[in-house]
Computed example of a mutant assay.
Amino acid sequence: MIKILFFLLPFSTMVAAGEPDTVLVKRVNLDEVTIVGFKQKKPNREPLSISTLDNRFLKENEILGAKDLSSLLPNFYMPDYGSKQNSPVYIRGIGAKKDAPSVGFYVDGIPHFETSAFDIDLSDISSVEVLRGPQGTLYGRNSIGGIINVYTHSPLDYQGTRFRLGYGSYNDIRLMASNYTKVNERLGLSFSGNYHHNDGFFTNLYTGKKADKLDNGSGRIGLVWKPANRWTTRFIASYEHLNQGGYPYGLYNADNGTTEAVNYNQEGLYRRNLLTSGANVRYDGSRISFNSQTSYQYIHDKMGI
Rank of each mutant, 00 (worst) to 15 (best):
S123L: 13
P101C: 03
N142G: 00
L138M: 13
T115L: 11
G109W: 05
D108E: 14
G145A: 05
T115H: 13
V107F: 11
D108R: 07
G109E: 00
F113N: 14
S123E: 12
H112W: 05
F113H: 03
S126F: 11
G146L: 08
I110T: 11
D119E: 15
F113I: 08
G133K: 06
Y139P: 08
P134R: 09
D119G: 09
E129D: 06
I148Y: 02
S102R: 14
T137F: 07
T137P: 00
E114K: 12
T115C: 00
V103W: 15
V107Y: 07
I125D: 03
R132P: 11
L131N: 02
V103C: 07
T115W: 00
D119K: 06
S116D: 14
Q135F: 01
F118N: 10
I148W: 01
L131S: 05
G145F: 11
V128W: 07
I125F: 09
D119T: 10
I120G: 02
S143L: 03
G136Q: 07
G109C: 01
D124C: 03
G145H: 04
L131K: 14
F113V: 10
G104I: 08
R132D: 02
G145S: 04
I148C: 02
I110F: 04
G145L: 01
F105T: 14
D121F: 05
G109F: 04
G133Y: 09
L122C: 07
L131M: 13
G136N: 13
L138R: 09
I148F: 04
E129T: 12
I147R: 02
F105P: 04
P111R: 14
N142L: 10
P101W: 05
P134A: 13
I110R: 01
A117G: 14
I148K: 06
E129V: 15
D124I: 13
S123M: 15
F113C: 00
G146Y: 04
Y139N: 14
D121P: 00
P134I: 11
E129A: 09
I147W: 12
H112T: 02
G146E: 03
Q135R: 01
S123I: 13
D108V: 13
R132W: 09
Y106P: 06
L122N: 07
Y139F: 14
S127E: 10
G104M: 08
V150W: 03
G146F: 07
V103L: 03
I148Q: 01
N149P: 12
T115A: 13
I147K: 01
D119N: 11
V130L: 00
V128F: 13
N149E: 12
I144F: 01
S102M: 11
P101A: 03
V150Q: 03
Y106M: 00
A100S: 13
I120W: 01
F118G: 01
F113S: 05
F105W: 10
Y151P: 04
T115I: 12
D108C: 08
V150D: 08
F105S: 08
D108I: 12
V130I: 15
R132A: 05
R132S: 12
F113L: 11
Y106H: 03
D124G: 04
D124K: 08
D121W: 02
Y151T: 15
D121N: 10
L131E: 04
L122R: 12
G140K: 14
Q135S: 02
